[in-house]
């Protein structure tokens, strides 16, 4: 269906965002000898094998011991190392929340918490692994920067950018092969939203995999004569509130789209921004206070209302509330 649409961004190949992380990490390792990698028995899943192979003396297999991994990483920062921890998003956050809170966030350590297999698009493994609460948990921590890039290229660029930024970062990415629709030479600016498509009737603020769904939704809306603006919010925290307010001042309403619970996610942060400044109708695309389940990624996105068709419906609803 999307093939026949005239989307403003197109793709010729798909790849997983986790590979963008893996390839970015190797490059970061070449640029800076202080970059070190730690992994909790998921080297293949996190695509950290290339880094391990090229820099064995800077790579640490931790085993299935995520709490210890967070502490080790915090300790390694003390003489200037830049540790990148790798495990699934579930085990990168909820499982080790207190370790991150005390040893990394409160202690303001330069640890990069790199989290794969986030959200419903993990697919068949089901709800135990499909974390939908991680953005909320991480954005609540003072000192923490929270980033959720949208495709292979953006994830690679983000990985390189966080290596150069000093401070704790949560970098969230995923498992499925996903369209590569952003340029390979993009400059990733932490905290700076990217206006991908200009529009006038409604703004779609999307993060992670759902940025592609937003691009598709824009084309579908355009066919119906509705002009949507699409803004890629790769950095959930610090949030680019200026970009949000400027866009909504123009369009008068918005939709937030994320692979996360309504509670605590990007939509919450946008709503808070609007309410404090200039309230406007907002519709939420996300998971409504439920766990996920097993299934194919695209089927799950459809069932839980997280695809382009649902963004279109939400956009029309938001416009109707103006």
């Amino acid at each position: 269906m999307e093939k026949t649409l005239d989307t403003k961004y197109t793709y010729t190949e798909k790849s997983d965002t986790r590979s963008g992380f893996g390839d970015g990490l190797v490059e970061a390792g070449r640029k800076n000898p202080n970059v070190v990698g730690l992994c909790a028995d998921l080297i293949g899943s996190l695509k950290m094998g290339a880094f391990q192979k090229e820099f064995p003396e800077r790579f640490f297999q931790v085993g299935i011991a995520e709490a210890n991994m967070m502490g080790l990483a915090a300790g390694m920062t003390i003489n200037g190392k830049i540790p990148f921890t790798g495990t699934f998003a579930n085990f990168s956050t909820g499982r080790v929340y207190d370790q991150i809170r005390q040893s990394i966030a409160y202690s303001d350590k330069n640890v990069k918490i790199c989290a794969s297999h986030a959200g419903l698009t993990l697919g068949e493994d089901g709800a135990t692994h499909q974390i939908l609460e991680d953005l909320g948990m991480m954005k609540m921590l003072p000192n923490m920067t929270v980033i959720n890039p949208c495709d292979y290229n953006q994830t690679k660029a983000a990985t390189l950018a966080i290596a150069e930024y000093h401070g704790p970062v949560y970098l969230r990415f995923g498992r499925p092969k996903w369209p590569i629709f952003t340029p390979s030479d993009q400059k990733f600016e932490i905290g700076k939203a990217w206006k991908m498509i200009e529009g006038t009737d409604v703004t779609i603020f999307a993060t992670g995999h759902l940025v592609w769904e937003a691009v598709v939704a824009e084309a579908m809306l355009r066919e119906e004569g509705i002009s949507a603006e699409v803004i890629n919010i790769h950095t959930i925290k610090p949030l680019d509130t200026q970009a949000i307010l400027e866009s909504v001042a123009k369009t008068g309403c918005c939709v937030s789209a994320e692979e996360h619970q309504y509670n605590g996610g990007l939509g919450d942060s946008i709503a808070q921004t609007l309410i404090r400044n200039s309230p406007a109708p907002q519709e939420f695309i996300g998971v409504d206070d439920s766990f996920g389940e097993s299934g194919k990624p695209e089927d799950l996105l459809e069932k839980y209302g997280l695809n382009a068709e649902n963004i279109v419906k939400a956009a029309k609803k938001a416009i109707g509330r103006k």
Partner: peptide, 8 residues
């Protein structure tokens, strides 16, 4: 854990 990381 932190001490081990610092030692490494």
């Amino acid at each position: 854990s932190v001490a081990i990381g610092a030692a490494q």
